[in-house]
Amino acid sequence: MRLNLTVNGRPHQADEAWEGESLLHVLRERLGLPGSKNACEQGECGSCTVYLDDVPVCSCMVAAGQAQGRAVRTVEGLADGDRLDAVQQSFVDSGAVQCGFCTPGLLVQAHDLIERNPEPTDAEIRESLAGNLCRCTGYEKIMDAVRLAAQRKAVS
């Protein structure tokens, strides 16, 4: 199967994709974009979260063919060149990154949260990130990072 899709603003083509592949597999193994992570491949961990036409989804649950003609934005597409997005910078500054395997998915999901809800309460942050498992941090510094990112986005 041949696929055409836009990823991070650029057109991409994948050839010879097997029909049972997920969008995640296509991004990682066919398009050279391994930033989105493959921790569970059952929609339980959120580490593969990407924007699909501006909506965050688990890319492991999207059949490759369903991405035909669609626009995808991954963790690799969050920064503006050398400048990290406020969410990315806040994760670094708050120590919210340890092994980092959950980070790409969390960044996309947190980015979307702040876009939709610029001043989230703690309860809203927790409910919004409940589908992103992290095994290293205990989430406290992730909370710090999201609060900091929201503050930074509000003043910028």
């Binding site: 690799e76 990154v97 980092g100 790409p104």
Partner: peptide, 10 residues
């Protein structure tokens, strides 16, 4: 890691 550029074994 926040850019998605850190190279994991997978």
């Amino acid at each position: 890691k926040v850019r998605g550029d850190y190279a994991y074994s997978s």
